[in-house]
Simulated scan of single mutants.
Amino acid sequence: MASKNRLVKETKVQEIKEKLEKAQSLVLSDYQGLTVEDDTELRKTLREGGVEYKVYKNRLVVLAAKELNIEGLEPYLEGPVAIAFGYEDATAPARILNEFAKTHKKLELKAGLVDGVVYGEEQIKAIASIPSKEVLIAKLLGSFKAPLSNFAYLLSSIKEQKESAETAE
Rank of each mutant, 00 (worst) to 15 (best):
Y76E: 06
E78F: 03
V51Y: 01
Y76S: 12
P93D: 09
F85C: 02
L155K: 03
V13M: 07
V117K: 10
V114R: 15
F144M: 04
E67R: 09
A126T: 15
I96E: 10
Q161W: 10
E99W: 08
A138P: 00
K22E: 11
S29Y: 03
E134N: 08
S156L: 01
Y119V: 08
S149P: 03
D30R: 13
L113M: 15
D115L: 04
L63M: 06
I16E: 14
Y76P: 08
L73R: 15
A126F: 12
K133D: 00
L97N: 14
L68K: 15
Q123S: 13
P80F: 06
L60C: 12
P131G: 08
P93A: 06
L60N: 14
Y119I: 05
P93Y: 07
S156Q: 10
L46F: 04
L109Q: 14
K159D: 02
E108N: 14
E122H: 01
Q123P: 02
Q123I: 11
L77A: 05
S129E: 14
L46H: 04
L77M: 00
E37R: 00
K4Y: 07
D115Q: 07
L26H: 10
E67I: 02
E122L: 02
E88N: 09
F144W: 10
L28V: 11
N58G: 14
E48K: 05
E121V: 02
E160F: 03
S132Y: 07
N58T: 08
D39N: 12
T45N: 05
E166N: 06
A126P: 00
A128H: 15
S156Y: 04
P131M: 05
K4W: 10
R47N: 01
Q161K: 09
G79W: 10
A168V: 06
F85G: 02
M1V: 12
T40E: 02
T35Y: 03
V62C: 08
Y53S: 02
V61R: 06
A128N: 12
D38N: 11
V27C: 02
K110A: 09
V36A: 07
K159C: 00
E10T: 01
S25T: 03
K54R: 10
F144D: 00
V27K: 06
T167P: 08
L141V: 14
K162N: 12
K125N: 00
N98D: 11
E41N: 05
K105E: 15
L68H: 14
D30C: 11
I16F: 09
L148C: 03
N5I: 10
L155W: 00
K12M: 11
A84L: 03
E37P: 00
